[in-house]
Design a binder for these strands. Structure first.
Lengths: 112, 112
DNA sequence: GCAATATATCCGGATAGGCGAATATGTCAA
DNA sequence: TTGACATATTCGCCTATCCGGATATATTGC
C-alpha cells in the first residue's frame, strides 16, 4: 500500500506531471533538455526528477556529462497509469506547449 | 491542469485510497459504514470525504440521517483512473481486509 | 591540474496537509 | 422541545513538501 500511495503522491504535482508527459512522449531526455523545455530553474527540475526516481517512476542512465531519464513502468499499476497519463496529459494546454517547445530544439543538440 | 493535479493529490493518501476502493466496490456507502470499516475516528473519515468531494472524486446524497457517498467519474480522466483503481487496489492487503470487514456487517444495518 | 558544462544537494522560509479530541450542526422521533 | 444519533467542522500541533539561489560534485577536453 505504501508504494501505491507514493506513486500517486509523485503524480500530485504539476511539474512532475509535465516531466512525465515529456518522458512518455520522447522515451528519454537529459536534465538540460527538460530544464529548457519546462523553463524552470535547474535545481527545481533536478529536485523533481530525484523525487520521481525515489518514488520509482523513472530510471536514469549516464552518458558522459549527461544523465538521461526515462519512465520506469515495471509493474501493472505503473504500466496502467502510464498509459492513462500518456493518453490524457497530451490534451492539457501546458503539456501541448511543452511538447511543441521540445520539438523546436535542434535534434541531439543538448543544452546551451 | 490544476484539476488534473487535484485529482492525483486526492489519490495521494492511504485513507482516501481505501475509501475509494470501498466505494468502487460497493457503489455507495454512508459515513458510518465507512468509519466502522476503516476503523478510524469519525472526524478523520469525514475530513477525507470532504477532501474527495472538493476534489471532484465523490458526490453525496442525503437519506434521512445518513449521507451516502459514491464515486463521481464524470470525465475521461477520472473514468480511466477509477477503472485502474478498481482493478489494482483490490490486490492490496489492507483493502482486501476492508472489503471483507464491510461484507461481514449485516446488510442495511447501518451504524452502531 | 584547470576550465567548462551538467547535474545534485543544501539552505531558509513559506504553505499544505495530516491527526484526533472536542464541539457544532442537522435530522428524526417521541 | 428534548434526546439520540449521524455527520461536519474547529482546534492546536506536527510533518511533508514546495521554492529557487547558492554551492557542491561529476565528467570531459585541453
Amino acid at each position: 500500500m505504501k508504494n501505491t500511495v507514493q506513486y500517486f503522491r509523485a503524480l500530485a504535482d504539476e511539474t512532475r506531471l509535465r516531466i512525465l508527459a515529456l518522458l512518455l512522449n520522447s522515451g528519454e531526455l537529459c536534465v538540460c533538455d527538460l530544464t529548457a523545455t519546462l523553463q524552470l530553474p535547474q535545481s527545481t527540475v533536478s529536485r523533481h526528477l530525484s523525487y520521481l526516481k525515489n518514488a520509482g517512476w523513472v530510471n536514469d542512465r549516464r552518458e558522459g556529462v549527461w544523465i538521461f531519464y526515462m519512465v520506469s513502468a515495471d509493474n501493472d499499476l505503473k504500466r496502467q497509469l502510464a498509459e492513462v497519463l500518456k493518453e490524457r496529459l497530451a490534451d492539457i494546454a501546458v503539456v501541448e506547449e511543452d511538447i511543441r517547445r521540445l520539438a523546436s530544439f535542434a535534434e541531439g543538440a543538448h543544452c546551451a
